[in-house]
């Protein structure tokens, strides 16, 4: 049992006992439902490049990747390294993930 699920039950029990609303009242479910309904209804815009690449003389992605494998691999490593460090304002030094305060946003 994760901590946030315990907290949800405890908050709800307190809400029932005190007559207040829970931290996440049912009425707020209207907002998340409306957002999700809209997001799923949205359509991406086909920009046509998948079909027109050859006609326009543009290389397909896989060909580009094949020719540039070395550079792409280097880029990936660089990005990966930077993404796992954070510059702290107090010291100005970079911290690795492992050095940061553990955080679980309580979601699953």
């Amino acid at each position: 049992m994760e901590g946030h699920q315990i907290s949800v039950i405890e908050d709800f029990v307190q809400a029932v006992e005190s007559g207040r609303k829970p931290i996440a009242p049912g009425s707020d479910g209207v907002v998340s439902a409306a957002i999700m309904e809209a997001a799923y209804a949205a359509k991406g815009i086909d920009i046509g490049l998948g079909r027109d690449l050859y006609r326009l003389g543009v290389s397909k992605g896989r060909n580009l990747a094949s020719r540039s494998r070395g550079r792409l691999a280097h880029l990936r490593v660089s990005l990966s390294s930077e993404a796992h460090f954070f510059k702290m304002p107090s010291s100005g030094r970079f911290l690795r993930h492992e050095e940061r305060e553990p955080f679980s946003p309580a979601m699953s």
């Binding site: 699920q5 949800v8 709800f12 829970p22 049912g26 998340s32 439902a33 309904e37």
Partner: peptide, 29 residues
């Protein structure tokens, strides 16, 4: 999620207007 359709969520809110009604959004806690 409470619902996938806004209309259904609104119906639930209407049904539950006289009771304590909550959603398991633990992130808020």
């Amino acid at each position: 999620p409470l619902a996938f359709k806004r209309a259904e969520a609104e119906q639930m809110v209407s049904y539950a207007s006289r009771v304590t009604f909550g959603i398991c959004f633990g992130s808020r806690l």
